[in-house]
Design a protein around this nucleic acid. Sequence first.
DNA 1: AAGTAGCGGTCAAAGGTCGA
DNA 2: CTCGACCTTTGACCGCTACT
Lengths: 421, 421
Amino acid sequence: MATSVPDAGTSNGSQAEEICLVCNDFSTGYHYGVPSCNGCKTFFRRTIMKKQVFACQYNGTCTIDKSIRCACRHCRFEKCLKVGMDRNAIQQNRDPIGYTKRTRRYPPAKTLTASMGVSPPAIVPQSQSPQQSVNELTAEQMAEDVLLQTLMQVENQVEKLRNSNFVMQKSLIEAVLATSIFLDPQFIESPMEPAHNYDILRPAKMADYHYWHEREWVIMIEWAKTIPVYKELDLADKLALLRYSAITYPAMIQCFYTPDKGPDTIVFPNGAYFDRNPEPERPAGFQRKKFQMLDNLLKPLRDMRVDINEFAAAKAIFFLNPDADDLQPDTRHPIAETRASITNALYRYMVKRRGSEEAADRYGKLLLLGTVIATMAVEMKEAVVVADFFEQVKFSPFAKELLFGVKHEANGGTPISVVTP
Amino acid sequence: MATSVPDAGTSNGSQAEEICLVCNDFSTGYHYGVPSCNGCKTFFRRTIMKKQVFACQYNGTCTIDKSIRCACRHCRFEKCLKVGMDRNAIQQNRDPIGYTKRTRRYPPAKTLTASMGVSPPAIVPQSQSPQQSVNELTAEQMAEDVLLQTLMQVENQVEKLRNSNFVMQKSLIEAVLATSIFLDPQFIESPMEPAHNYDILRPAKMADYHYWHEREWVIMIEWAKTIPVYKELDLADKLALLRYSAITYPAMIQCFYTPDKGPDTIVFPNGAYFDRNPEPERPAGFQRKKFQMLDNLLKPLRDMRVDINEFAAAKAIFFLNPDADDLQPDTRHPIAETRASITNALYRYMVKRRGSEEAADRYGKLLLLGTVIATMAVEMKEAVVVADFFEQVKFSPFAKELLFGVKHEANGGTPISVVTP
DNA sequence: AAGTAGCGGTCAAAGGTCGA
DNA sequence: CTCGACCTTTGACCGCTACT
C-alpha cells in the first residue's frame, strides 16, 4: 500500500501508461491489455477464474479510486471491463467452444505434450498465448468493430446533448439533411453541462411528454446521421427509418438514461417523472405503453445491467430494421448488412467482456428485446393514428411530419414547437 | 505486504514474534506492524474504524494481559499504540463478502445449478475447482440440451401430423386440456403418410385458408403441450400464449414446410397455393400479411437455410413470449427462463454444427426474426379485429375462441368446422 | 546470453462474519 | 452491544515462458 499520492497535476499524457486506468494507482505495466496496478490485475484474474458475480449495493455507479477500490467489487470489475481489460487474455479456463486443453493442476510435468487427444487446430502451441482466435480478426471483422466503436463513442455524447440546453429550430427535413452535431468537433470537446437535479421530482405534465418526445426525436435524428449506411440513403428511406423508430427510440432512451428511482419510475432530465399511475388526460392506450416501457424495457435493461456500449449497439440494431414500412426494396439489403455487422461486433464485444458462455445468453436476451420494440412500434403506430384521428393529441408540425410523413412545405421550415416544461 | 521480517540479528526475536506484544497471548502474525493476537488486532481495527474514545476507570495504568485484556479498553488501546500498532495500516471499508460459516446455508446465489431442492452440500462448491471449463457441460446446460432435443424430436413429427388425415373434433378447451398426440407412442411409431402431390398446384380459395389455419392451430396446440413449462401453466395462461401465436405460428409453419416453388409461392400440403397476386375477396390487410410472410419470413428462412432443428427452437422461442398479453405476472418469469434455456441450447447447437463464428451471426439473425414475428402478431391482431368487426370473415367458433378468447360454452364442445378443400 | 513484458501462483496480512 | 475464532480477499512479490 504505497500511500504516495501521485501528483495528478502533471497533465502530461505521456505518463498515462504509468497510471492504472482502473483505480489511478501506479501501474506496473500492461495487464490484460490495460495499464494497471497489481491489485486490479489480480482482482480481474481472480474474478474471472472463480466466475464470481458481484452485486452493487448502490446503483452501479460507484467511483473507483485507489483509496476505495475495494469498496465495491461489482463496480471495480465493471471498471476493469470498461477500460478494456480483455478476459480472453486470461489463460486458464479457456473458451469452452474452441476447446483447448489445459495442463494445470498437480503435475507441472510438461512431458505430456500431447496431453489429451482432441486437438482441432493444426498448430497446437503447447503453452497458449492470448493470441489465436481473439486477436486475429479479419479485415471485415475489424471494420465491424470500428463501426461499433463509433456507435459507442457517439452514445457517450448522447447524454451530454440530452442534458444540454440546445435549441433546434429546424424543420424535420432540414434536421435530417444537416450535418450531425455529434460529428461537430466543437460539440464533442465541449464539457458536459451539470446534470439536472434528479432529487427534486415532480409528476410529468402533457407539456413534458411533448417536450421530451420532440427533444428525443432531434437526438435520434442527430444520432442516425452518424451511421454510415444511413447517410447513403435517399431522403425517403431516411424518413422511413425515423418514422419506424419514432415511438420506440424515445422509449429506449428514456428507459436507459433514467436515474434509478425504483422499478416503476422513469424520470426526464428536468425532473419530471411518470410511473404506473393512470393519467386520465392522456389518450387511452398510452397507459399501456407506459406499462410496456416499465415491464418490457426498463426491467430487462436493469436486470441485465446493460451497459452503455451494449445499449449503443442495440439501439442501432433495432433502428436499422430492413423490414420497416416504406423502405425501398433496394435499400433493405444494405441496411440488413449493416445490422448484421453490428450484431457480430456486439457479440465479439460481449465475449470479450463476459466470456463466451454468458455472452451467448446475454446476446440472445438483448436481441429478443427486438420483439418488445417491434410490438411497441406497431401498437403505438396504431394508437397514434387513432389519437390523431380523434384529435385527442395536438401534434406539433414536427411530430406530424415525423409520424405521418406529412409533406414538407415548399420553402419555409416548420419550426419545432418547443414547449417549455 | 512483504513482511520484511526484521528479526535478522536479534537472538530472541524468533520467540518474541509468536507472542502478542499487547496481551502476551499467542500471536497470529504481524498485524498493523506488530506481532499480535486476533483479539487485539480486531480490537484495534474496530476502535479506529468506529472512532471510539474510551476512558479508564482507574489511573490509566492497567496491566493488559491475556486473561484480563478486556477489563479496560482505554488501557488496551493505549497499549496497542505503545507497542507500535500503526493506525495508517487501517484500510477503508471493503465490500461485504457474505456468510463465512460453513455450517450455514448455501453460498450467495449465482450458481443456479443446484438451486432446487434443499441439499446444502457439506462442501461448499464455491471454492475453486477450475475444472468443468472445456467439454464438460454443467447439469443445467445438459438439461437445456435435453429440452432442445425434445423440441427437435417433436418437430420431426409435425409434418407427419400435418400431412395426415387426422380429424380433431374437439373444442379449443378440450384440445388444450387433452394429452398431446405428439406424446402418443402409437402416433410416434406410425409411418408418415404419403406426402401430398406438390406437383399439381391450384390457387388457394378462402376455404383453403380457413381449413389450413384451423389445422395449423390444432398442430400448434398439440405441439405446445409437449413443452414442459407450458404444461404447468394455468388454463388462462395457456390460452394467452396460444392467442399470441395464433397468427404467426401458422405463418411460420407454412413458410418452413412449403415446397420450394420459387420465392413468391407458398403451398399448402393439399396443393393449394398463394403468391403475391392480390385476392380481392380476402379482407384488406391480408395482402400485406402475404408480403410479410414472403419477404420477411420465407426469404430469410430460405436464405439462411434454417434447418429443422433450428426451426424447432425458433418456434418455441417466439412462442414462449413472456411479454404476451394477458399472461399472469407470476408466469412470465418461468416462461422467460425456459425461453433462455432454449436460446442457450440453440446457440450451442449452432456452434457445434457451424463453428463459433458463423454461429454468432446465424443466432443473431434467427433471433431477430422475432421482430418480424412480433410485428405480424400485432398487426394481424388489429386486422383480425377489424375484419371481424366488419364481418368480412366468417370465423369459425374454434377461431373465435382462439382469437378473441370467447368463453367456452358450458358443456358442448364446439366442433371444428372442417372445410373440405 | 541476457533482458523484458506479462502471464499465473503464492501467502502474509488486510477486512468481514456471526455465535457466544 | 462487544469479543474473537475463523473465514475471505487483497496485492507485493516471485517464477515462468515467449519474444525480442
